[in-house]
Design a protein around this nucleic acid. Structure first.
Lengths: 357, 357
DNA sequence: CGAATTTCTTTACGCGCGTAAATTTCTGAC
DNA sequence: GTCAGAAATTTACGCGCGTAAAGAAATTCG
């Protein structure tokens, strides 16, 4: 039996453009010198328009792709951009990555996505493996508290790096994240205005430092509204937030340990678990009469619209955060020199009112 | 102010091993010949134990990592393995990727994770970009119906590829997936045994062909139990399953278009949306008395335990599917030749009884 | 139409490492 | 201690392309 791509006598059929292995060969076939081709593949706009058209016409007839390894071996700067996220199984970061990838490609760069899976060793490992491909720059969403600062710092010294989502002070060339004070402030204000002031549901040892900022932001916001903060600080390690939210939420509810009828969760994933716990124990969550509990979150998780009831939360402005991070990184790469000052920006979120509070 | 890593006078402090750029240099410093080092880095076990120890000792003193690009330029076979998933923002595939990555690394391969983001063009684009790094093999979770078969086929001809999750018949060197007939059969049997037979909630144009298999499996299972199948087939495109489940579920419930009190959803994400719709309309979901509706899913999504109520579903045996896929790919790579026959295997799932049915 | 400028071609070298062949050194068993 | 076999060294070449320099060709412009 002849396989597809071969005629019955076994000779190859020319159904698609002939494969060309080397640039040398392609130069001979196309009648364009190799150095010119090299320039073209490096940046098509760097050759005369008429030449560009000749190359493109030749590419139609011959199937040639420059060898990535040979290219990057000698090039002082690759066109790789590393994207490191702390935990890809969190749909939140998956979304960020999904938005970042096409933007990189559009700018002519090759995005390489890596996840630290919540593990500091993995984070360093990722950075080390990125080092190997000599990226022009890296977008790093750090683990935060767990990050091994000195290692990350060493990496950032060698390679242009922009931090996002979670700051490690003084590390990297820039940082863009959420204005936790504003987002938490907005929910607290809303909750205080429409009912009892909220207690704050959080993990004692949250892996992400945003949790600390939210803790502080909650405390300040409560005092600003003339209330004493009420913390529901629970144990639990790792990134299984839903599970922790559910287990600890169940415990709190069963023990009647809630000081008010309103709970603000440090993030949406905790809230998802907490809502499940409330449902499980027969507590009606919502804002109207006949409801026993109000629950709000923070992040606007992709699933926040499908909890029971739909979760009231604050969306992070991730378009801006991702966009700004990439933009800044590209400008650093293009300028060819590291910026003297480290830019830091916090973007406001917007309150997303649904049914849970 | 002196930055860390520098003494006050500005000279670099040697806090960590000195960086060595080339293997030549490292050979001179370590007193081991370059070809031997080359062998070592290619496969440490290929050199004598005493030599290995000498190299490792030298690596303690000097910071040297072989240049990835120079390595792969000449090597006939790289140690890269491509992992392509259809949709990374689906926590399900994120979990698969998370499990696959360390397994690859453990086997001495470098995993490169790419997501097609539900787009066929992106899928081909991913494969093309993988081609550039000449992977030793690829694990491909295809989009399925949407996949451009001829392009995928062409890729698989050139590079050892194992398909998982979703089959494209005749393409690739092997396929491992779920036994949809068994998983759907198991839920249907459970539902029929414990109450009214289920209607089947599904998308008319599901992006994944597993949906078709589940459709057929449901139909067969129902007839086997002596019931007429009842399809709740809804419109909707793309991968926003929760949204589709919610919107269409809301519509069906509001229109009182449910033929029974039991709904089996084609997958868990649809079920999550459907459960939200039921909650929204005040339908009590669950199996005991006082419940208006039973809902079950299929997949055992990471969030299935945190829906309201917790979702009864069938877990896929993803450890086996991922493990088998990788194992097969590695054996193909090691053997150096493509297998004459295409292996196909379907793994059974296990019923996960929670509270929704 | 000729000069100034831009672009292309020719020639040449090197990147860091894989890899082969010939030679030398080491190992382990007798 | 001897000697065969294994392992390491020496030497050498090439991978596919970046890139620099000098000269040839094409383009632009007055």
């Amino acid at each position: 039996m002849s396989s597809p791509g071969e005629a019955r006598d076994g000779t190859k059929m020319i159904t698609r453009p002939a494969k060309v292995r080397t640039m040398e060969e392609f130069a001979a076939l196309s009648g364009i010198s190799r150095p010119t081709l090299s320039k073209f593949f490096n940046d098509p706009s760097s050759v005369r328009a008429s030449t560009r058209e000749r190359v493109e016409a030749a590419l139609e007839r011959f199937d040639y792709t420059p060898n990535v390894y040979a290219i990057n071996q000698n090039r002082q700067l690759t066109r790789n951009i590393g994207i490191v996220v702390p935990y890809l199984a969190d749909p939140f970061f998956a979304e960020v990555a999904r938005n970042l990838e096409p933007l990189c490609a559009q700018a002519g760069f090759n995005p390489i996505l890596l996840s630290s899976h919540g593990d500091a060793d993995r984070e360093i490992q990722n950075l080390d493996s990125l080092r190997g491909i000599r990226p022009a720059g890296v977008l790093l969403g750090p683990l935060g508290r767990r990050s091994r600062r000195s290692d990350v710092e060493a990496f950032c010294r060698d390679i242009p790096t922009v931090l996002f989502d979670c700051d490690i002070e003084g590390v990297g060339d820039a940082y863009y994240g959420s204005n936790n004070a504003q987002t938490v402030g907005a929910v607290v204000a809303h909750l205080c205005r429409t009912g009892e002031p909220p207690a704050f549901f959080e993990m004692r040892h949250a892996p992400n430092p945003n949790a600390n900022k939210r803790h502080a932001a909650y405390e300040r916001a409560m005092r600003a509204h003339g209330h004493e903060p009420m913390f529901l600080t629970v144990e639990g390690e790792g990134w299984a937030f839903e599970e922790i939210g559910f287990n600890e939420g169940s415990r709190l509810i069963a023990a009647r340990a809630l000081p008010t009828d309103t709970v603000l969760c440090s993030n949406d994933r905790l809230a998802i678990g907490f809502l499940a716990a409330a449902y499980d124990q027969g507590l009606r969550v919502g804002s109207g009469p006949g409801h026993a509990l109000r629950v709000a979150g923070n992040d606007d998780h992709p699933y926040a619209g499908y909890t029971c009831p739909a979760l009231t939360t604050v969306s992070q402005d991730y378009d801006s955060i991702a966009g700004c991070s990439l933009e800044r990184l590209l400008s650093i790469i293009e300028s060819g020199e590291r910026p003297p000052v480290r830019e830091t920006r916090h973007f406001d979120g917007t309150l997303v009112l649904r049914k849970s509070a």
